[in-house]
């Protein structure tokens, strides 16, 4: 800020408060809805203050779910989401850091070709190759299992580029010193490179965890067995019946529960997350 302008400051605050209000409003309403009984909506409008049914609604969602929707209780679905999110994050980080290590620290025929093949995945999001990818997964017998949910998603050009970029900034002499000190490639990777990449790995993990948790189309295609539903896609099934039955209160409890874990991760690790986001994508 260059000069002091009280009016401008006031307007800025006003704008920000308004912005925050718009951002928070839907979630606030959803939270309020999730604390009421099923009949509180029949008057035609959602109440604006919390009701007394918070624990009841949440525990019902977590343990028994909305039976008429064909979706299981939230707890197993959240477990599936957790496995998928961690699986996708760990998988992407592992195979990307290995590829980046190979591309930066070795010279071999087809090195550039390998780099471009990884690059191409950027241009092929799941959404544009839905049917054939489904067919491949089906023919490999990977429908309705965790492998099918996770493995096809773990190729990652962005993660590979991030690690490559980082490795290029690691001084050459570090690797040379390690070689003189008797470390082979894998020992150098494990003893030196991996510990140096800690911050990058952590930042990337946060972003990829959120990405994995929020997958929607992929679990929709791969899982027909309710035991494997993830929570984000499962909620859609509940919302679909919620219009027929006045059960919005517990559907909103489910929405809150589905959104909470990734939001908590981001708020708790804000600094790392911001670093990871702005550095991965630029």
């Amino acid at each position: 800020m260059v000069e002091n302008r009280p009016l401008l400051n006031f307007l800025s605050h006003l704008l920000l408060i308004l912005g925050v209000a718009v951002v928070v409003f839907p979630v606030y309403v959803a939270f309020i809805a999730s604390t009421h009984g099923p009949n509180d909506f029949l008057s035609g409008v959602v109440p604006l203050w919390p009701g007394p049914h918070l624990l009841e609604n949440y525990s019902q969602m977590l343990t028994t779910g909305l039976s008429s929707s064909g979706a299981p209780p939230l707890l197993p679905m959240m477990w599936n989401s957790l496995i998928m999110a961690v699986g996708v994050a760990v998988g992407k980080i592992s195979i990307s850091i290995l590829s980046a290590f190979a591309i930066v620290y070795f010279r071999f025929p087809f090195r550039t070709l390998a780099f471009w093949m990884i690059f191409i995945t950027l241009m092929l999001p799941v959404e544009v190759r839905i049917v054939p990818t489904f067919q491949v997964v089906a023919s490999l017998g990977m429908l309705n299992n965790y492998g099918g949910l996770i493995v096809p998603l773990i190729a990652s050009a962005t993660a590979t580029f991030l690690f490559r970029q980082f490795f290029l900034t690691v001084p050459d002499e570090l690797m040379e010193a390690a070689r003189v000190d008797g470390a082979g490639p894998l020992k150098f990777f494990w003893d030196i490179l991996l510990p140096l990449s800690r911050t990058n790995i952590a930042a990337l993990f946060i972003i990829l965890f959120v990405l994995g948790w929020n997958q929607y189309l992929w679990p929709l295609l791969i899982t027909t067995d309710p035991h494997l539903y993830t929570v984000v896609m499962g909620i859609k099934r509940m919302a679909a019946v919620a219009d027929a039955e006045p059960r919005w209160n517990i559907v909103m409890a489910a929405v809150m529960l589905a959104a909470l874990p990734p939001v908590l991760v981001i708020v708790a690790m804000q600094r790392l997350f911001v670093k990871g986001l702005t550095e991965t994508e630029k």
Binding site: P171, E173, E176, A177, V180, A183, I192, L196
Partner: peptide, 18 residues
């Protein structure tokens, strides 16, 4: 390099930072 029984001092020292 490790089999040559030599030790090297680098210009930027190349100490393992962690």
């Amino acid at each position: 390099p490790a089999e040559r029984d030599i030790a090297m001092v680098f210009q930027n020292y190349a100490l393992y930072p962690h």
